[in-house]
Computed example of a mutant assay.
Amino acid sequence: MNYHVLVVEDDLGIRETLIDLLYSCGYQVSSAINGKDGWEKIQEINPHLVVSDIMMPVMDGLRLLELVKSSTIYHHLPVLILTAKVDQFTRWNSFTIGADAYVQKPFDAVELLFQINNLLALQESILLRGDMDFDPEIAIKKHSFLSQLNEAIRDNMNESTLDKIAESMNLSGSGLQKKIKHYTSHTFSDYLKRYKLSKAKALLQSGKCNVSQSSQMSGFKNLAHFSDSFKEHFGLPPSKVVVQT
């Protein structure tokens, strides 16, 4: 699917950097210069995902987020907040309103692409299930758990067993399995594989790694297995995703 991403950012340099990065990764990209412009663009183009700054003139990103998540038409639209504001209140307020992800500026291309890939994959699975309900409390709990899980996997990439990840999260193995199943409908092993593949895809899209390097940095010990898994999951070999810089 040719996903359409809307970038809402008032800083010209950052906006153009984001557009170039996303376009080079195969996304269709539109842009807006503030929240008001962004809200109008959302209604005009109906994007698959929004990447928005917070501090903007005319209308800020949090107000745009409120409009999206309170809309009966667009409440399902994933919104990734990209901002230099890193205080705990701003993060918590963003997630309370309904932000689907939060990336700090200056952003790392791998992290940003990883978050975008995951949000789009999650959104596609939600649409396939027909589950369009939104409960802010559940969304906050889910985001908190998945953020902790992703951090635990990242910190234990070379020893990412169920017991090791569960221990780092102060959970039992069975407790971790149940939580993952509850929030994602996947088993631990399936979620871990998807995490590693998404990480590899983000590395390839960033232009920082070749296929072999992305395989190793994503925790795959066998290049052939990685290539087969990547092609099965994304529908094309990893060599077709490499972005030349």
Rank of each mutant, 00 (worst) to 15 (best):
M1Y: 04
N2V: 04
H4V: 08
V5R: 01
V8F: 01
E9P: 04
D10W: 11
D11H: 14
R15Q: 13
E16W: 09
L22D: 02
C25R: 13
Q28H: 02
Q28N: 02
V29F: 10
S30T: 11
A32M: 08
W39F: 11
K41Y: 13
I42Q: 01
I42C: 00
Q43G: 06
Q43Y: 00
N46T: 14
H48W: 02
H48D: 14
V51M: 07
S52M: 00
M59E: 13
L62P: 06
R63E: 11
L64R: 01
E66W: 01
V68S: 01
S71H: 07
I73K: 07
P78C: 03
P78E: 02
P78I: 00
L80N: 15
L80C: 15
I81F: 09
L82T: 08
T83N: 11
Q88T: 07
T90F: 03
T90S: 10
R91T: 01
W92E: 15
N93H: 12
F95R: 04
T96D: 12
T96M: 01
A99W: 06
D100M: 08
V103P: 11
V103N: 12
Q104N: 15
K105F: 09
F107L: 08
F107H: 10
F107N: 08
V110R: 05
V110Y: 07
E111P: 03
E111H: 08
Q115Y: 05
N118I: 01
I126F: 08
I126C: 05
L128Q: 00
F134T: 00
D135A: 03
I140T: 10
K141C: 10
S144K: 09
Q148W: 07
L149E: 04
N150L: 05
I153W: 01
E159I: 12
S160H: 09
T161Q: 09
I165E: 07
S168W: 05
M169R: 03
G173Q: 02
G173W: 03
G173K: 02
S174P: 02
K181Q: 14
H182T: 15
T184A: 10
H186T: 10
T187H: 13
S189E: 15
D190T: 12
D190H: 02
L192Q: 14
K196R: 09
K196I: 04
S198H: 12
K199R: 15
A200F: 12
L203T: 06
L204C: 11
S206W: 05
K208Y: 13
C209L: 12
C209W: 06
N210Y: 09
V211S: 02
Q216N: 03
F220C: 13
N222S: 15
L223M: 00
F226R: 13
S227Q: 07
F234S: 04
F234V: 06
L236E: 09
P238N: 01
P238G: 00
K240H: 12
V242W: 15
V243R: 08
